[in-house]
Amino acid sequence: MTTIALVTAISATGHDEDLPPLQSACERAGLTARALAWDDASVGWGRMGAALLRSPWDYTERLPEFMAWCERTAHAVPLLNPLPVIRWNTDKHYLADLAAVGIPVVPTEFVEPDAEPMEALQRFLAAHDAAEFVVKPAVSAGARDTQRYQRSQEFAAGNHLARLLDAGRSALLQPYLPAVDADGETALIHIDGRYSHAIRKGALLKIGDTSPLDPHAFGDIRNREPAEDERRLADQVLAAASRLLKLEQPLLYARIDLLRGADGAPRLLELELTEPSLFFAQAPEAADRLAQALLARLADGTVRTRTDIG
Rank of each mutant, 00 (worst) to 15 (best):
L238R: 00
Y176P: 00
L252V: 11
F218A: 07
G208W: 12
Q236A: 08
I207F: 15
S196L: 01
N223W: 14
Y176A: 11
A182Y: 11
P226A: 00
A240T: 02
H216F: 12
H190N: 07
S242I: 06
L161N: 06
I191H: 04
R224L: 15
P175I: 00
D192V: 04
A198C: 14
G168Y: 03
L213G: 09
A217W: 13
L188T: 09
L161Y: 08
S170Y: 13
P175Q: 06
L164S: 06
L252T: 07
G202I: 01
E230T: 01
R231F: 08
Q236G: 10
A227M: 07
L164T: 03
G208P: 07
H197G: 05
P212T: 07
E248I: 14
L238H: 00
L177H: 10
G202F: 06
E228W: 13
A182M: 13
Y195N: 02
Y253I: 06
L247F: 04
P250S: 05
D166C: 08
L247H: 04
I221K: 12
A217Q: 14
P175H: 06
D220I: 11
Y195H: 12
A234T: 13
L173G: 06
L165T: 05
S170Q: 15
D181Y: 07
G208H: 06
A167K: 08
L164A: 05
G184K: 00
P250W: 08
N223P: 11
G168T: 01
P215V: 04
L205N: 02
R200H: 12
E228C: 15
D214A: 01
A162W: 14
V180H: 02
